[in-house]
Nucleic acid binder design. Structure first.
Length: 856
RNA sequence: GGGCGCGUAGCUCAGUUGGUUAGAGCGCUACCAUGACACGGUAGAGGUCCCGGGUUCGAGUCCCGUCGUGCCCACCA
């Protein structure tokens, strides 16, 4: 065709084809397709917090290969893109970018301009601004970041339908998030409760179990003597405990030992006096106390850790709270605690208070021996910098089986409705669900997020009545209870006794992103039947690190709302490892920028590397693999040019009639097996296997088959043979281009465009030429001739001669059974090997004798 | 402590119901300007499949165990 360039090149094809696909709407979802004709993808909305890294390129490429395969297989592919922009990451980025911080007590400033737009100097003190001003800046920055993300994803060639874009903070997401929550409230699946929870003192918000991580920190065991208040004659006068948190002595409410521990059995029910602070606490028994830990008896404080919470609750202990929401020791002296001693630690952070308390204990003689240094794991918020504290606060929860074994079992069973890729990832899900010990805490004391859509009546004293929250009508969603007024009230009743108050909190990010199927699928949005056409989704792609958060929370919401799993397949991507086998990430400072890689190697080359990582397997970052991908894409262009150059076969015959040469039929039979394998692999979400099979065949095709038959295509004296080869070459080429299209969308489209009118990405997925009952040819036949060709090549290489060197005589020894096969490739072998004389003789083993002509 | 992976050529990895002489790419070595491709081509060297048992006619593949390595969870007085 006329469109073949003289010099095929990969340079610039990304911009050209991305623009073409955009203007042609190549990837637009057919909204009229029936459910069974749809392949729907619950795309992970990336956190928009500044920059993309190689991990994004890796996992999004995997999904895209599946999307492209399904599209070519005839499905209407529903492939949306969302931005997860609500929540803490955005707040943090806004603070860092503009040099501000949110202070809800500040008044709104109309037309506020931040002091900086990007990179405030280090010494800059963040200026406090009102919540509405802060939210405006969030909206502004999110828009900038989202443009960068979209640009990269387009450059990466994702076949997303960009008309299906959403953001987790946009109006639709807020409406759906609030609607789903209100349904949970109505059905009793969501509830509010005042209880001790893990609390980040810097972000000043509660955090959920799923967001807690352990980090190793150094600490010390302090052995402390508690005086017994009612020791009998001759008994030890004190009981010693060990603790890593002596600063919590003032919060001590009991000591606890195991009920079977003979050492302490006599003391259960007696009391001791807490050093320094003087409060009397009882010695209690509880199964959770471990005889082999420390001295075998522990102090219970309200609250040092989550075990304390359990003890406090189950033993019905008193409450002595000393740590405030800002992490400092509270000014109020707890009941029974010595005022003078307590005053010395008021206002201190725990680590500061610990120093003071240890000094005081040393002076008082209650510290036994030297503190013993240890390394131990401490709970942190995954985004936080200081250890979590336990703070009592009122929060909203959604039931997730953490406190209900029947629900837990039901959610585990939902996991069985999903096909996991790879299968072993299901264990991570089950493991997590079975290990839950609390409900899902969804409220956060933050600013940029979906508001919790409830108000509370205030009693005559102005205290909220939490038991009967005031709920909005669904028709009014989304609402913001801090500005909207509940039905039956007027704005001037806000925060007045007898009036109402809005819930000040927002939802955690996961509470909204757990609804991505509903958001992308327009669940119960007016004027659309979209949801019925896409839900349950076919595919949920995501990283295995967020099984416990995103995957599980989505499952929970779908279980409550619809009673089904939200997708049929969950495809888990692995990590990127740097060459030292460590996880690559921003934190380790070794992340390559995706833009740089795409620029340096080309998109297809980077995608090739990504697609060579097996599903769910951690994959080494490898520029070498990208070079291989570059080479492959380049080869695809060049072999296309070469094959098309031969021209089309004459006549208009069927494939079966046109391809007469057994060697050609053998090649196409081999191709059939590849098509079958690649198709099965893609259907099973194994893009890597599909690529591997296709690639292996492709190189065999280029290096052996094309070399073998090219002489025949030039041979005007054998038009039948030439036509057979040309037809077979084109058949294989078209199939190969389509097999590669999901992985190398740009090179495949470029090569395809030289001889086809419409996009390869909407072309039909290739099907085999033959079938099981009537194979198109004998796949092994061509191998016989190619083995002989290889031996001829070897002779030339060993003689250090050019492959073009003339073979004066080639004598092939082979058993009679192979003679027919050798004969089938005889003329091709003579052409490809530059053989003057070929003789075949009978012999048990295959061997060749090659006699090269002298050099000129 | 519990769960789940992984250990095959110098490197990165395939190896699908157990079956002739264990594969690929990169790298390495030697060679080749041959009708598209030097971002090319041809060929070569290179492996006690972590180790030890067992099942089997036959084990890289199945079973048991050891070691190494990674992730998740629990415990963290």
């Amino acid at each position: 065709m006329a469109n073949i360039p003289d010099k095929p090149t990969l340079d610039g094809i990304e911009e050209r084809w991305a623009a073409q696909w955009d203007s042609d709407d190549t990837y637009r979802f057919d909204a009229s397709a029936p459910r069974e004709g749809v392949f729907s993808i619950d795309t992970p909305p990336p956190t928009v917090s500044g920059s993309l890294h190689v991990g994004h390129v890796f996992s999004y490429t995997h999904t895209d290969t599946i999307a492209r395969f399904q599209r070519m297989s005839g499905k209407a592919v529903f492939y949306p893109m969302g931005w997860d922009d609500n929540g803490l990451p955005t707040e943090r980025r806004v603070q860092a970018y503009y040099g501000v911080r949110c202070d809800p007590s500040q008044p709104y400033v109309d037309g506020f301009q931040p002091p900086f737009r990007g990179d405030p100097p280090k010494e800059h003190q963040a200026i406090p601004i009102s919540r509405p001003n802060f939210l405006e800046l969030c909206d502004e920055l999110v828009e900038i970041d989202e443009e960068l993300f979209e640009h990269l994803f387009r450059r990466l060639g994702l076949s997303v339908d960009w008309n299906l874009k959403y953001a987790t903070i946009d109006e639709r997401s807020r409406r759906i998030s609030q609607r789903a929550f209100l349904r949970n409230v109505e059905r009793g699946e969501a509830y509010t409760q005042e209880a001790p929870t893990l609390w980040d003192i810097d972000f000043r918000t509660a955090v959920a179990q799923a967001e807690v991580v352990d980090r190793s920190r150094s600490g010390a065991y302090h052995r402390i003597a508690f005086a017994q208040t009612d020791a009998g004659p001759g008994e030890a006068a004190s009981i010693e405990i060990e603790t890593t948190r002596p600063e919590l002595l003032a919060a001590c409410v009991a000591l606890v030992a195991h009920p079977d521990d003979e050492r302490f059995k006599p003391h259960f029910g007696t009391t001791v006096k807490v050093p320094l602070y003087g409060q009397h606490v009882e010695i209690r028994a509880h199964e959770l106390a471990q005889p082999d830990k420390g001295t075998g008896i522990a102090m219970i404080c309200t609250f040092g850790d989550t075990t304390d919470v359990t003890w406090w609750r189950e033993l019905s202990l008193a409450l002595r709270v000393i740590i405030g929401r800002d992490g400092r020791i509270l000014p109020e002296v707890p009941a029974g605690v010595d005022v003078a001693a307590y005053e010395s630690i008021i206002g201190k952070y725990p680590n500061q208070a610990q120093k003071i308390v240890v000094e005081q204990l040393t002076e008082s003689g209650n510290l036994i021996g030297e503190p013993r240094r240890i390394e131990h794991d401490v709970k942190f918020y995954e985004k936080g910098d200081r250890p979590l504290e336990v703070v009592t606060s009122r929060q909203w929860y959604i039931r997730n089986g953490g406190k209900d074994s029947a629900l837990r079992a039901a959610l585990v069973a939902r996991g069985d409705e999903v096909t996991w890729h790879p299968d072993h990832m299901r264990h991570r899900y089950e493991n997590w669900v079975e290990g839950l010990n609390s409900d899902w805490l969804v409220s956060r004391q933050r600013f940029f997020g979906v508001p919790i859509p409830v108000w509370y009546r205030l009693d005559d004293a102005g205290e909220p009545i939490y038991d009967t929250p005031l709920l909005p009508d669904e028709a009014d969603l989304p609402i913001d209870p801090s500005t909207d007024v509940p039905t039956g009230f007027t704005a001037d009743q806000r925060d007045q006794p007898g009036g109402f108050a809005g819930d000040p909190d927002i939802f955690d990010t996961w509470a909204t992103s757990s609804l991505t199927p509903e958001i992308a699928g327009l669940w119960e949005e007016d004027g659309t039947d979209r949801f019925d056409r896409v839900f349950p989704f076919d595919m949920r792609p995501q990283g295995h690190d967020i099984i416990r958060t995103w995957l599980f929370s989505t499952m929970t919401r779908s279980h409550h709302e619809f009673g089904v799993a939200p997708w049929g397949h969950a495809a888990l991507s692995g990590w990127i490892l740097d060459p030292d086998r460590k996880k690559m990430g921003k934190s380790s400072g070794n992340a390559q920028t995706p833009d740089g890689l795409l620029e340096q190697f080309g998109t297809d080359a980077v995608r090739y590397w990504a697609a060579s990582g097996r599903p769910g397997v951690d994959t080494t970052f490898s520029e070498d693999q990208m070079k291989v991908g570059r080479k492959l894409a380049n080869k695809l262009l060049n072999v296309t040019k070469f094959v098309l150059q031969f021209g089309a076969p004459s006549g208009d015959r069927s494939l079966d009639d046109a391809v007469t040469d057994p060697i050609d039929r053998s090649m196409l039979a081999k191709l059939d097996a590849v098509i079958d394998d690649a198709t099965a692999a893609f259907e099973a979400f194994d893009y890597a296997r599909a690529l591997e099979r296709t690639e292996a065949f492709f190189w065999w095709f280029c290096d052996n088959y094309v070399e073998l038959v090219k002489g025949r295509t030039y041979n005007d004296e054998r038009p039948e043979g030439a036509d057979s080869a040309k037809r077979a070459l084109r058949e294989a080429l078209g199939a190969l281009q389509r097999l590669f299209a999901p992985i190398l969308p740009f090179a495949a489209e470029e090569a395809w465009s030289w001889w086809n009118e419409s996009s390869i990405h909407t072309a039909a997925w290739p099907t085999p030429c033959g079938d099981d009952t009537t194979p198109f040819g004998d796949p092994a036949l061509a191998d016989v001739t190619i083995e002989l060709l290889t031996q001829v090549r070897r002779s030339k290489t060993e003689a250090k001669r050019s492959q073009r060197a003339v073979v004066e005589s080639l004598v092939v020894t082979a058993p009679t059974a192979l003679h027919a096969a050798i004969d089938a490739g005889r003329s091709d072998l003579i052409d490809a090997g530059s053989v003057l004389d070929l003789r075949v003789v009978e012999g048990a083993e295959v061997s060749t004798t090659v006699t090269l002509a002298d050099e000129d």
